[in-house]
Design a protein around this nucleic acid. Structure first.
Lengths: 291, 291
DNA sequence: CTTGACTCTCCCCCTGGGGGATATAGTATA
DNA sequence: TATACTATATCCCCCAGGGGGAGAGTCAAG
């Protein structure tokens, strides 16, 4: 029978940790004095503690370790947990590696360009930053980078080159029917896919709303899966007529200047304003997939 | 002037986030109504918010972002912060990659060996796990893996093969002088370096205590820097005479069985017991660097 | 019996907000 | 203007894994 301090010294952990594990039901003392409340351990509990620490070393949470400590644990269950952890760790490593890469790109940019504005450093990635187009000159708000998880959009599809404002008309048709869509969130999404191999300017455009669960797809509508992606986000303020200019600025000015390349995936327009009418002060966003 | 909900919609962040940033001093509303407490923002604050989000995307904490948002920030300071972040992210990536590797090794072991005990899976890495040496047969407690940060040990050095128990004698000399060492923590460390190229069994052994800061090194003592390392930890219970057997079990049995190789670095013995006298029930630890 | 070392419980702290309760404020409609 | 609905405010608890410390009680040696 060891007092908590002795057991902690022997086990090379802190007293706080032992108390915490006891409280979490991971390692109960073999005996607790009813009168004093003192916790008593035995040396036989050391292997259990070591098992806890080994599992923690593999990245499991205390709640998961509680599951893994059960007597009835089979090798199959352990494998399942390890598989999950493997996937999780791969994502973590990938995510942090990409973040590291972004930091290193910013550092290289500073070393290469010398003194540039913080804004330039944050929102461009490389290329010829000496071409001093500020975002105000091109009519864009400073961009943002955002990684969106996968989601679904329900709405109506158009295919063509939008020569006669068919897309605006489609929104006009869709909006009165918006109540048919079990939307989550308050944004309207225009998901746009340029069609390679087609004549210039032909694209598919799905106008719709984000959904999570749905019973059926209303007549004339469809659902599209938008995969997880990282986007450069541009703000467009003003009417839809100047949208073309903003796109031109993004593609011809920002993309080559920043050294990013458009990645595969869907372009998106995200309307956060009152999406039933576009006032001249409307702000909405253009999401361009980047890698 | 926008109410918080409007600004949140336009900026594509949650109201909670804006309130949190206001509370943390990152983005104050331009105006707060004295009577109602309502926060009001302007569209001009959008670039600042985007800057905050860009910095968060690079991995900075809100406190660091508060520093980085100052008007007086120079490119040099930004570079310094990015450098720090770079180092930190590299460590994170490395650490998580190693963890991922450990998880994958365990998975491979399960696939290869089929059904083995959880203990085997946790504490071995591969090799011939069918050679059923349990740890009890070899007199070892189940091992643990531990990554120790770099630290310093102050104490006395011996060099030789310990044929006449010189090390125990050295501890006998050191212990009465232990008060001269500004030790932190309660462990005594025996830091051991096998000398390659010397005749067999000759090694350097520093007996001492962990220190953090010190004014001077007492007569006859020295300080050794122990670098950060990952160790396999073995428990030795009993007298010092059987220590040799434990070492033999580790090197001849566990290391080949587990598929680990001794890594460069220092072997260590860590005494957590009353280190002034070794009773037969003393438990202490052998730390073997592994990779 | 005293004293010092040990242990107990309880509370606050860390990150970056999310979720919810409850009380007003503002706005739109009848 | 009364009502109803939405928006906002503050306040509190929650996540993980303990660390640090206060105040009070316990244990063991001299």
């Amino acid at each position: 029978m060891l007092k908590i301090g002795d057991f902690a010294r022997i086990a090379r952990v802190t007293v706080k940790t032992l108390r915490h594990y006891a409280c979490e039901g991971l390692l109960e003392p073999v005996y607790i004095d009813r009168y004093s409340g003192y916790r008593y351990y035995t040396i036989d509990q050391l292997p259990t503690l070591n098992r806890i620490l080994a599992l923690k070393d593999l990245g499991f949470s205390l709640a998961q370790i509680r599951q893994l400590l059960r007597e009835t644990l089979t090798a199959e269950e352990l494998r399942g947990m390890l598989r999950m952890k493997q996937i999780e760790l791969r994502q973590t490593v990938e995510c942090e590696s990409e973040r590291l890469q972004r930091v290193e790109e910013r550092l290289q940019m500073i070393d290469r360009e010398g003194s540039v504005s913080v804004s330039e450093i944050l929102f461009c990635r490389g290329g010829d930053a000496a071409g001093k187009h500020t975002q105000k000159e091109t009519g864009m708000e400073p961009v943002r980078f955002e990684t969106l998880p996968a989601f679904k959009v329900m709405g109506m599809k158009y295919r063509g080159d939008n020569a006669n404002q068919e897309i605006a008309q489609m929104w006009g048709v869709l909006n009165p029917r918006a109540h048919e869509i079990p939307m989550t969130g308050e944004c309207a999404y225009g998901v746009c896919l340029m069609l390679p191999g087609e004549s210039t300017g032909v694209f598919e455009y799905i106008a719709g709303f984000k959904v999570e669960e749905y019973d059926h797809v209303p007549e004339g509508m469809m659902v599209i899966d938008v995969p997880e992606n990282r986007y450069a986000v541009f703000a467009h303020r003003g009417s839809l007529e100047t949208l073309k200019d903003t796109y031109a600025a993004i593609c011809d000015d920002w993309f080559p200047r920043a050294g990013y390349k458009p990645a595969g995936g869907y372009d998106m327009e995200v309307y956060t304003d009152e999406f039933r009418s576009f006032s001249p002060d409307s702000v909405f966003y253009i999401y361009e997939p980047v890698k």
